[in-house]
Design a protein around this nucleic acid. Structure first.
Lengths: 236, 236
DNA sequence: CGCTATGTTGATCCATATCAATAAGTGTGG
DNA sequence: CCACACTTATTGATATGGATCAACATAGCG
């Protein structure tokens, strides 16, 4: 299971802000028990309800965090390189609340949860980084919940597109980064409804061709979407 | 503003698991800059978007955490004695994502956020407690989101009633702890819809008289509600 | 190339919101 | 203590957002 080339990943992990400030000795202590593995797409890495033995880190690729109940399933969020997931379960030594599957070919590092908790107590800066990370995760979910409870699906899509547009940097047009099916699930709607929602945004200058989106007039769409930093900004 | 009797609250605050393990000196450092105030009902304590200068602690009464967007409003959660709120904003020194108002006459302690961050770095046990608290908060919101995305409003109500029944401890029957208007908002529905939802649960043995709820057969309701520890248990 | 999963479109159904009217509390000041 | 105002809860009628079901098109992919 353990790969010889793992050391090659140290710099990537080290620069993750969770690990960037900590003492070398403590970092190595974490790495000693860790291992890295490559996974093909669509592999279920963890299942909700399982005990949280490892903190996971996405080194490359991407991971879908989703949940199920009574035969239904929904996408909760996406983990990108380089970031951790299920940090909260690791901290509390509690069962996972979400399942995780690779979206594409992905490289994942696993650090024994026990080591994370031990090093937390031994390294001030690591503790500071963990709490900061966790607080950010918390705030992200709160924003997601506000998004769900205060907006219609059309408003959620409009704001999602504005976010994506912003992230892409390009003046006009960007590609959707996921299957529409998954975007629909993330936004809390069905694929059929998403398909119609795109059309419903046409009067506001949104046009879509396959996975390519163009927004004719940002201000026009913003007037409808009413983006709010306390819901839509990922940073704050 | 500062009350002479504040010292009387020390034991209550001290026994909050966030503060129970820390060194005396550090605890006093936190208390030195803190103060306590009594508020009448329905007073807005903080407004979303404001900068987070104080960590708040509910000593008695209760506090509604809510959010607004585009003229709409929704209840996100409730803070009870003795617990903190807006810990995440304090940690990250970021603006509040939620507003807070007293539900009833309440006694609130305020600790300067700067002090919290300073003592975090100085006291191992306090750091450990904060991270644990925060992880629990995070997991609560994730559960709330699963509840919203995976269940219909009728299913949410059914599970809410099962939770309340369990908490009440009594064999049959308990009183709703909030106005129905607020329960509706918490569950992400309108008051009218809640009113009808109660009736729709009658076939499963739920009867309501004012704010008093009786569940004829728990198993019957559970068969419909399908409660799930990964959504409904507050502890895990 | 054909298979399978994804996306689109249309028809319909259902859950939930909205609007409106009324009833029942709850608190206030005379 | 009562009358009044005001908020909350209920109920009915209706509208609508969004889900579901079904058919078909399309795009990846072995």
């Amino acid at each position: 299971m353990r790969l010889d080339l793992f050391e090659a990943d140290y710099p990537d992990i080290r620069e993750l802000h969770l690990f960037s400030e900590m003492a070398d000795a403590q970092f190595m202590k974490l790495m000693r028990g860790a291992y890295v593995q490559n996974f093909p797409p669509r592999i279920e890495l963890i299942t909700e309800g399982d005990s949280s033995d490892f903190l996971h880190i996405v080194l490359s690729g991407s991971v879908d965090l989703f949940s199920t109940w009574n035969g239904r399933e929904t996408s909760m969020s996406t983990a990108w390189p380089v970031s951790t997931f299920i940090l909260a379960a690791t901290i509390r030594d509690a069962p996972y609340l979400m399942s995780a599957r690779t979206l594409e070919k992905s490289r994942i590092a696993l650090i024994p949860s026990r080591d994370v908790r031990a090093v937390f107590d031994a390294d001030q800066r690591f503790a500071r980084a963990i709490v900061s990370d966790l607080a950010q995760c918390y705030r992200s979910v709160v924003k997601a919940q506000k998004n769900l409870k205060l907006r219609s699906s059309l408003e959620r899509l409009a704001n999602y597109l504005l976010q994506q547009q912003k992230q892409s940097g390009s003046a006009k047009g960007f590609d959707l980064r996921f299957e529409k099916r998954r975007i629909a699930s993330m936004l809390g709607m069905t694929p059929e409804n998403l398909s119609r929602a795109f059309k419903a945004l046409r009067p506001y200058g949104v046009s879509i061709d396959g996975s390519h989106v163009r927004i004719a007039d940002l201000e026009d769409l913003k007037r409808f979407a009413k983006p709010d930093p306390l819901i839509d900004d990922s940073a704050t």
